[in-house]
Design a protein around this nucleic acid. Sequence first.
DNA 1: CCTTCATTAGTCAAACTTGACTAGTGCCGG
DNA 2: CCGGCACTAGTCAAGTTTGACTAATGAAGG
Lengths: 213, 213
Amino acid sequence: MSVIRLLVLGAVRQHGRAHGYQVRNDLEYWGAHEWSNAKPGSIYHALKQMAKQGLLVAHETAPSTAGGPPRTEYEVTEQGTEEYFRLLREALTSYDQKPDVFSAGLGLMVDLEREEALALLERRLASIEEWRKAVTEYYVPEDGPGQLGHIGEIMDFWVHSADTGAAWTRGLVTRIRGGAYTFAGEGEPFVGVLAEGEENPFATGQWNTPDLE
Amino acid sequence: MSVIRLLVLGAVRQHGRAHGYQVRNDLEYWGAHEWSNAKPGSIYHALKQMAKQGLLVAHETAPSTAGGPPRTEYEVTEQGTEEYFRLLREALTSYDQKPDVFSAGLGLMVDLEREEALALLERRLASIEEWRKAVTEYYVPEDGPGQLGHIGEIMDFWVHSADTGAAWTRGLVTRIRGGAYTFAGEGEPFVGVLAEGEENPFATGQWNTPDLE
DNA sequence: CCTTCATTAGTCAAACTTGACTAGTGCCGG
DNA sequence: CCGGCACTAGTCAAGTTTGACTAATGAAGG
């Protein structure tokens, strides 16, 4: 699954209606350029592609007052909402060794109800356990470990990552169960996007920064 | 950096001369299809592209006795060897939150001398420390944490991953320092690729498996 | 003997990603 | 008062990845 689609759908959905540059800023606000491939090109491509596929509707808009080319605003369709929740549930549930997907899921999990988020995270823990069993069976077969030499370190690294990832997830489950954060249907949601004109307090200036020389 | 190039260069180099299908099998032997995007299409593309760029030389070969289309064999050029070591050193050193790159580095680290591998891993630990300091400064600014709401969980997840990854790396350093594995210049190297015709004991049958229905 | 099916080896179009580039506006220093 | 720079908003070509497809051989089974 492409993490870009999930992120872009999530961002557009929280705005109700958003243009590409807004989405770009939201993703930077979430730090997504640090832990995923959320680059301008990918974002604009995803918007266009999803509009073509009916997950978004595009509205042509007059050029902004602040200069720059005319913008296109997007809105999530019903089909897009369905796809969004499908991707979000998958991101939280499945262990595919792609931490960026899980991160996106964390950033958007509050769009679900608390109980569902908890259930998905529990399923994730089971999924990690399953993966762990499968690989340790495949890669430590009858002739014992050690046959693999240094190649075995790769497996050990992944198993270690899976284990510590599971431990962290259990901590998250505890925090959520303890009442942390505001989930869907629990009143005023946390504002996870930037309002029009609001500046990003966490801007790291990774993009568009002219060469410092 | 593309992990495919590193993996393909490493595989071809260990064979001396290899065709695409051999590389494909090596990567499956290393489990690369589990933890990276090492799919047939990517592998063949990387071979062709690197041949075009002078990192590999291509030799047309008569069709194999075992059927199938005519094969192309590749050899790493001097320029390719340089690029290989550049990528390998980078994979072991830099912390870019892409576990697949590091895994590839682990699988190929024995092409370096023991002391250099240790030095690179130490640099990696420093690089993680540096990254950690940077993000905790950026994302926990004057107004304190908690301002971020559930978005803060993303950062916490990454910091946790970095910390446990560093701990694992320290363990690896200890093992290597203690004499584990055979590095470059230490005699008969570990056979990390499959000989012609040898079957892969760890085949998981992820590729080419006909639909089970 | 003939059909089926796995294995060998690879191609290809469509989709996605990347990094560099464009272009209009406003602000600020000299 | 104007030259350059930063910001807004986005495009584009080149490169990469994906998943499905092709095509030849040989062994196994009926």
